[in-house]
Write a protein that binds this DNA or RNA. Sequence first.
DNA 1: ACTTAGGGACGTCTAGGGACGTCTTGTGCT
DNA 2: AGCACAAGACGTCCCTAGACGTCCCTAAGT
Lengths: 159, 159
Amino acid sequence: MRTARNVREGHLTGWRVYTQIADRVRERILTGLYAAGTSLPSEAALSAEFRVARNTVRRALRTLEADGLIVTAPSKGRIVKTEGQEVTAVYRYQVIAGDLRRQIERGDLAPGDTVPSVAELRWLYDTSRNTVRQALAELQQEGLIMSRPGKRRFVRSRE
Amino acid sequence: MRTARNVREGHLTGWRVYTQIADRVRERILTGLYAAGTSLPSEAALSAEFRVARNTVRRALRTLEADGLIVTAPSKGRIVKTEGQEVTAVYRYQVIAGDLRRQIERGDLAPGDTVPSVAELRWLYDTSRNTVRQALAELQQEGLIMSRPGKRRFVRSRE
DNA sequence: ACTTAGGGACGTCTAGGGACGTCTTGTGCT
DNA sequence: AGCACAAGACGTCCCTAGACGTCCCTAAGT
C-alpha cells in the first residue's frame, strides 16, 4: 500500500494513454496547428478523434494546463496561451461589462447619464439580448448603474 | 365626456383601428384560416402585417380573448380555442412532467424505482436537455423524485 | 380632459445548443 | 490493492432566439 504512494510523481514509464495524447496535442500547439489565442477542439471532439474516454482526454489536458500551455474556460473551451500574456475577459458579456465600466470610471458616462439601451448594445456588439442583459446585470450588481421599467438605465451617482 | 362612456360596448362606429383588426382576425378564425388548436401569428407578425403598433394589436387580441375565441400562453403565443374544450398542458415540459407524474401515481414507477435518464427522455420526446430538466425539476420540487450526482434519479417513497 | 395610436425600453418565460465540472460504477491490467 | 480507462449520469454556465407582459411617454383626434 505504500509502494506506489512513495513513488515520486515524475518517473513513469510512459505507457499511459493520456500522456501520449498530451504529447500529441502539445506537438500541435508547438507547431502552430493550434495557434495561440485560438480554441482547442472540445473534449468531446478530442475523445472522438483519439477514440478514448472523455476522462482520459481530461487527464491529458490537465497536464498541458499544468505546463502553462493552455487555459481552460468553463462553458467556452480551452484556449492556447499567448506568449506571456494573461487571458482576461474570456466571455462576451465580460467584454461588454468591462467596456462600459471603463467608460463610467473615466467619466465618459457621468452619474445621471443614460446608458446605451439593450437594443443599441446588441447592435454595437452584435450579440444576443441575454448576453447584453448579463453584462448590464453585472454592472447593476456592482452598483454602477440602475434601471427602472419603461425607461432607460442610468449611471448611479457615486457614494 | 360621457358620450363615449355611455355607449354600450357593441355598436361602435368602427373607426377605431383595433376593432377593425379584431374583426379581421375573428373572421380568419371563423372561416378556419386560423384553425382551432393552432397558433395565431405572433404580435410582431401581426403588427407588421397590419402596419400598426404592437400595442394596437394587443388591444385587438385582448377583445378576442374576452370573446373566448383564443387563449394566450406567455412565451408561446395565442392559440385558437377548440369548441368547448379546456386547453391544458400548454408547454412541452408540462407534458413530460405530466406523463411521468401519471406513471408514478399509477404505480408504473414505484418508489425506489429509477427514473428515465435525461438522455432517454430527450430521445423519447425529441426535445432539448433544458426542457427535460425543467420537467424533472418540477417533479423534484413536488417531492416525487430525487436526484444525486453521478447516479440516476429515483422515485421517492411516499410519506 | 380623455381616448386612441405609436413607439421605445425593460422584464420574464420557454426552448434549444455547446462546453466544462463532478461523481459513480464497472473492467482490466499490474 | 491500486491505477488507468471506459461509460454514463447529473450539474452548471454561456449563448442565442422568440413570445408575451409591463411601463412610460408623446402625438393626434374627439
